[in-house]
């Protein structure tokens, strides 16, 4: 049985890159940074379908995003989201003396939004 603790990996996508040039206030950009890509097995286990709203939280914040089945990129237990406002809310301020907040590989919990 998978735990409901996931590893979240925010990253860049080319869709985000192109949308960024159109502007950060376009629907495409907003959609891109609020869509969570998940492993299909995880979605099945949690009874989720593409388009469902999910809550994702850690000690920093709680956000609500739309989930979507990925095309096999992430293994079970790993989530992906385009780097942006939503992922930043889940980042802590501590950089562990490096100047770099832990921005990839964040532990988060996830549940279907009621």
């Amino acid at each position: 049985m998978m735990s409901d603790i996931f590893v979240l990996i925010p990253g860049r996508t080319s869709r985000q890159g192109t949308a960024l040039n159109e502007g950060k206030y376009t629907d495409t950009y907003k959609e891109e940074i609020t869509t969570l890509l998940m492993n299909a097995e995880d979605m099945q286990r949690l009874d989720l379908e593409t388009g469902d709203r999910v809550r994702m939280w850690n000690e920093q914040a709680e956000v609500v995003v739309t989930c979507k089945a990925d095309k096999g990129e992430s293994p079970p237990g790993v989530l992906f989201i385009s780097y942006g406002d939503i992922s930043s809310q889940l980042m802590g301020g501590d950089t562990h003396g490096s100047g770099m907040p832990t921005s990839k590989g964040l532990d988060v919990q996830l549940a279907k939004a009621e």
Partner: peptide, 23 residues
């Protein structure tokens, strides 16, 4: 949009000068 929440909260509070071609 990219910094951690505590960093963003402080930046919003202090006077700032910003140069950018886009909003």
């Amino acid at each position: 949009s990219n910094f951690s929440q505590p960093a963003r909260e402080h930046l919003a509070k202090i006077p700032s000068v910003v140069l950018d071609p886009k909003l």
